[in-house]
Design a protein around this nucleic acid. Structure first.
Length: 370
DNA sequence: CATACGTGGGA
DNA sequence: TTCCCAAGTAT
């Protein structure tokens, strides 16, 4: 029974799997990079990043030898930047503590930053053939439907019970292909919204499908609505250069560069009129306090909106002149010509501002008299 | 156990 | 427009 299920799944995977670059590789480093990039990220999004990353960092040694800034620059736009910082740190740990060889056991892999339960099992099984089952979002969904599991798959109990099931179903000696087959099924057939049950190679084993409950599985609880945040952002000019700050390593967009900004008191719902003019004054006062720079606000440049996972941002961007003071405080800062900004990794909003400045570069050229 | 952490695409 | 999601991890 179990063997028949695994056989049907494996057989389907051999003929129907997508051709993906990391599947044609047996290099543990390449498998590792793919698994980290694929965390919470779609295959189509990862593809170009994966190619560029391996071109720039072809081996774990080359990554370890690079700077964190280079790693972040290659990661820009992919999101969840702690993945890049952790991958970089982990590469250095592999070189220093594992002799440059990527460890092959789940326990050792878990010692590396950025490698949790899923990624350790994925690398161990796919790259080293260890008989360990993976449990990611795809596998949870597939198993919840196969067994008509009615518990919350994201609770601790759900994780544990599905993990037991996954390990029990694993065919010894074929963990790598089997794990990928289960995930591939979840990604292409057993999808969240509209599963293609008629095309499913294992539908005869699926309890939810036979009960017409495939849309009701898996059970998850819904999350809280995203709050709204408002920021004032300053493009501060001084002799043809603009001021950039580096964000703290922890927290949002950690390690990336950004234009100086202050958080504004959230406006009442719907009553946003007048906010930009107040924002200019708040920006002036806020940057004097936090950075120690005195600025004059010249003109509003643009207003940007962006949706993060847990909140929504509106940013009022202002053109500012530096008046006095030296940047000081917690954050690292640099005065940079606009044309240099491209080399500094940024989040989406700040990159958008940087591109805007590049388009209007003439306005930011050094003053002839200086 | 709950929350923070990005971005782009589909319904 | 708004909401939800997509090969998770760290705290």
């Amino acid at each position: 029974m179990l063997a028949a299920f695994a056989g049907a799944l494996l057989n389907w995977y051999q003929s129907q799997q997508r051709s993906l670059p990391w599947r044609s590789s047996s290099d543990p480093y390449q498998i590792w990079v793919s698994e980290v990039m694929l965390q919470q990220t779609r295959v189509e999004t990862v593809l170009p990043y994966y190619a560029r990353w391996l071109e720039r960092f072809p081996t774990v040694d080359s990554l370890a030898a690079a700077s964190q800034q280079e790693a972040l620059a290659m990661w820009e736009g992919l999101g969840y930047y702690s993945r890049a910082r952790n991958l970089h740190r982990a590469a250095q740990k592999v070189v220093k503590e594992f002799g440059g060889r990527i460890p092959s056991t789940v326990a050792e892999l878990r010692m590396l930053p950025g490698i949790g339960a899923y990624t350790a099992a994925a690398i161990a099984s796919i790259a080293f053939g260890v008989d360990v089952a993976v449990l990611d979002g795809n596998v949870k969904r597939v198993l919840a439907r196969l067994f008509n599991y009615s518990g919350d798959v994201k609770s601790a109990r759900g994780e544990k019970e599905l993990s037991m099931l996954a390990q029990r179903l694993l065919p010894p000696g074929q963990a790598g292909d089997y794990n990928q087959a289960l995930m591939e099924l979840g990604a292409t057939i057993c999808t969240p919204r509209t599963p293609a049950c008629p095309r499913c190679p294992v539908r005869e084993w699926c309890q939810a499908q036979q009960l017409g409950l495939q849309h009701a599985r898996p059970v998850t609880r819904k999350r809280a609505p995203a709050p709204r945040r408002v920021f004032a952002v300053g493009v501060i000019r001084k002799r043809g250069r603009v001021l950039l700050t580096q964000r703290a390593d922890d927290g949002l967009l950690g390690g990336l560069w950004a234009f100086p900004s202050v958080s504004l008191i959230e406006a009442e719902t719907g009553a946003s009129s007048g906010a930009p003019s107040n924002a200019a004054l708040d920006l002036q006062r806020g940057l004097r306090q936090s950075l120690g720079v005195c600025i004059s606000v010249q003109a509003p440049l643009q207003t940007l909106s962006h949706a993060y996972t847990h909140f929504r941002v509106t940013a009022y961007v202002f053109d500012c002149d530096w008046l006095a003071g030296q940047p000081q405080g917690q954050l690292r800062v640099k005065w940079l010509p606009v044309s240099w900004l491209v080399r500094y990794p940024m989040g989406k909003i700040d990159r958008s501002i940087a591109r805007h400045l590049a388009r209007t570069h003439a306005a930011y050229a050094p003053h002839p008299g200086l």
